[in-house]
C-alpha cells in the first residue's frame, strides 16, 4: 500500500513550519512521528497536498523544568519520555500510560504531541494528560495561546488546534510523590485500549487525600472523572471503601459499542479498572 503523491518540506524551525502551513492552507498536513498518519495515508483515507515534517524542529523536543511544572515538547518521542528523569519524578502517570502504547518500534517514532493532536479516543496519552491538568501550548500565525484540557479535546480526532496552528508543547504541574497507575484493558497487547484508566493519588497516612482520574475510550474524547475524584477524597486505602467511592465512575459517560465490547461492558470495565488503578496507585 502506497500513499497518494504529496509534496514534502522539512523545516528546521517552528517559524518556518508555521509559514509552510500558512502558504499551503488546508492542503498541508503536519507529520510528527508518522505512526498514525502514515497508516492513514497508505489506506488513502486522507490525501494531503504537502506534508510539513516537524522532525527537524529541535526546539519542539525535550522535557524542561519551569519550576512548578514540566514543559514537554510536542516532538518528544515516547521512548525519550520513558527514560526522562524529570518526567519519571513529576509526571509519572503520563510515563506509565506511554509505556503501554503500541510496541517498542512505534515508541521509538511516535511523539507525545502527535498522539495528543491525533486525539484518537482510544489513544492512551490523552487521559493521563487530562488527569494531570495538562495545559496545551498552541502556536499559530497570531502567536501563542494556552488551552486547558477541557477545551483541547473537542471530538473524535478533533482538537482545538487550527489548520494553521501547531501544538508546540504541553505543560504539566508537577505531581511529585503522587502514586500512579495506568490500567489498560486490551485483548492484543500492542493495540489500543478497549478501556483505560489513568489514576494519580496523593496519600496521607492510610487515606487518599486527593485523586485525579482520566478515562480512555469512554466517549469521543478522554474523560475526567471528577465525581469519582471527589468521592475518593478522604477515603481509607481499603478495597471496599475505594470500590464504593468509584462505583459511579462511568455515570454520564458515552462509551462506544463496537466489536471489542458494547457500551455497558465498557461502563463495567471502567468501574473495575478504576478501583484497581486507584488501589495500585495508593500502594495497596
Amino acid at each position: 500500500m502506497i500513499p497518494a503523491s504529496f509534496d514534502y518540506v522539512a523545516p528546521a524551525t517552528l517559524d518556518e513550519a508555521l509559514a509552510a502551513l500558512q502558504r499551503h492552507g488546508d492542503g498541508a498536513k503536519i507529520i510528527a512521528g508518522g505512526q498514525s498518519l502514515l497508516p492513514i495515508l497508505r489506506m488513502r483515507l486522507n490525501a494531503p497536498e504537502i506534508l510539513v515534517d516537524l522532525g527537524k524542529v529541535s526546539e519542539l523536543r525535550g522535557v524542561f523544568d519551569d519550576g512548578p511544572g514540566l514543559v514537554i515538547g510536542a516532538m518528544t518521542r515516547y521512548d525519550e519520555l520513558l527514560s526522562d528523569p524529570l518526567a519519571g519524578a513529576h509526571a509519572k502517570l503520563l510515563v506509565d500510560a506511554v509505556a503501554t502504547v503500541a510496541d517498542p518500534q512505534i515508541r521509538h517514532r511516535g511523539t507525545v504531541g502527535g498522539a495528543l493532536a491525533h486525539a484518537d479516543p482510544a489513544g492512551d496519552v490523552g487521559a493521563p494528560a487530562l488527569a494531570l491538568d495538562a495545559q496545551f501550548v498552541v502556536v499559530g500565525p497570531r502567536g501563542q495561546r494556552v488551552v486547558d484540557g477541557a477545551d483541547f479535546f473537542v471530538d473524535h480526532f478533533t482538537t482545538a488546534v487550527g489548520d494553521d496552528e501547531i501544538l508546540a508543547a504541553i505543560r504539566i504541574p508537577k505531581h511529585t510523590g503522587w502514586g500512579t497507575r495506568y490500567e489498560k484493558f486490551v485483548r492484543v497487547v500492542h493495540q489500543w485500549s478497549i478501556v483505560g484508566v489513568a489514576a494519580a493519588v496523593r496519600v496521607e497516612g492510610d487515606t487518599i487525600a486527593e485523586a485525579k482520574i482520566g478515562l480512555t475510550n469512554m466517549g469521543s474524547t478522554p474523560v475526567r472523572a471528577r465525581s469519582a475524584e471527589q468521592a475518593l477524597a478522604g477515603v481509607p486505602i481499603e478495597e471496599g471503601a475505594v470500590a464504593a467511592a468509584v462505583a459511579s465512575v462511568a455515570e454520564g459517560t458515552n462509551p462506544p459499542s463496537d466489536l471489542q465490547g458494547d457500551a455497558d461492558y465498557r461502563r463495567h470495565l471502567a468501574q473495575v479498572l478504576t478501583r484497581r488503578a486507584v488501589l495500585a496507585a495508593a500502594g495497596a
Binding site: I31, G34, D53, G55, R109
Partner: peptide, 28 residues
C-alpha cells in the same frame, strides 16, 4: 503492510523502527 507485524523492522540511528511506517525522506 499495516504496521502490525514487525517483519520490516530495521534500525534507524541504532533504534528499531517499522520501515513500512517511515518515509524514505524522513531517513534523510
Amino acid at each position: 503492510d499495516t504496521s502490525n507485524c514487525g517483519a520490516c523492522t530495521v534500525h534507524l540511528d541504532g533504534r528499531s523502527v517499522k520501515s513500512c511506517n517511515v518515509l524514505a525522506v524522513q531517513a534523510d
